[in-house]
């Protein structure tokens, strides 16, 4: 059976992993390759590097991080942050990334999804969607708006409509972040997850809101997510990946248990 994936997300600034709260109070937490190897040993199923530097220097640094990671870590990893051209996607893949995650550039230019998928295959094109719940007006049904630029600007689009277009354009996976839940540790927006997962047939990765183990299980069952991105819950030391997987296994979810130490 296809296992549910646990995916640690590492924020990379220059050539270092940092952690902070919503881009503030950034602390250096180490070398990306060492952190990647650490999570690999713990049994992470994949890794995501989010390049938060968004500068030319940052771009060169992330290429170096990618190639050093690919030399040492033999699980899939995705790179996101400021990716806006087929050329740069190609560079990241050549340096050893398995997938790229596109967000703002895909909203500006949906053809980038198609061009990326045509060149490199859908399997390596992840589209990240930042979603915020709209205030209910007359309608009683829920809806969510897409935000761009790291959640700064409303994109004027409905999340479900955009998710379907992402799939039709050749996106291989959707990384879905609930801006309302992100950082709250109070659980995922399960209604959002389930609505998107029901609207597309490509896998949905849940992000934003996990504070306890039960939240992860809910995202993978009620929310119908294929995978969960784990940031705060891991970085702040509350749980290890092994804790998470043992819990999910007890809940009857299929997970790949970490290999026994040699």
């Amino acid at each position: 059976m296809l296992a549910k994936r646990i995916i640690p997300c590492l924020d990379v600034l220059g050539s270092r992993v940092v952690k902070g709260t919503r881009f503030l109070d950034l602390q250096d937490v180490g070398d990306p390759v060492e952190r990647a190897a650490y999570y690999d040993r713990q049994g992470a199923d994949e890794l995501v590097f989010l390049d938060i530097s968004a500068s030319v220097e940052g771009r060169n640094a992330i290429l170096d991080v990618v190639s050093r990671t690919a030399d040492a870590v033999f699980i899939p990893f995705t790179v996101g942050g400021g990716i806006d051209s087929v050329q740069f996607i190609g560079k990241l893949l050549q340096n050893g990334a398995d997938k790229v995650s596109i967000n703002t550039a895909a909203l500006k230019n949906p053809d980038l999804i198609k061009a990326g998928a045509d060149h490199f295959g859908s399997q390596c094109i992840v589209v990240a969607i930042d979603a915020r719940r709209r205030k209910a007006e007359r309608s009683s049904s829920s809806c969510w708006e897409v935000y761009s630029h790291g959640g700064r600007y409303p994109a004027g689009r409905d999340v479900i409509e955009w998710a379907v277009q992402v799939q039709e354009s050749g996106g291989g996976e959707i990384l879905l972040t609930s801006m309302d839940s992100d950082g709250t540790l109070s659980g995922y927006d399960l209604e959002l997850l389930s609505a998107v997962a029901g609207a597309v047939s490509i896998p949905v990765i849940a992000s934003g809101g996990a504070g306890k183990l039960e939240h992860l299980a809910e995202a993978l069952t009620v929310g119908r997510a294929h995978a969960v991105l784990a940031a705060s819950i891991l970085h702040f030391g509350a749980y290890t990946i092994a804790d998470i997987k043992q819990y999910l296994k007890r809940r009857g979810l299929p997970v790949r248990m970490p290999p026994a130490p040699a």
């Binding site: 059976m1 296809l2 296992a3 549910k4 994936r5 199923d45 859908s122 399997q123 291989g172 996976e173 047939s201 490509i202 896998p203 294929h226 995978a227 790949r256």
Partner: peptide
């Protein structure tokens, strides 16, 4: 049709 595609992950 009916299955999530691509088949992505550990199996």
């Amino acid at each position: 049709p009916g299955l999530p595609v691509p088949h992505v992950g550990w199996n």
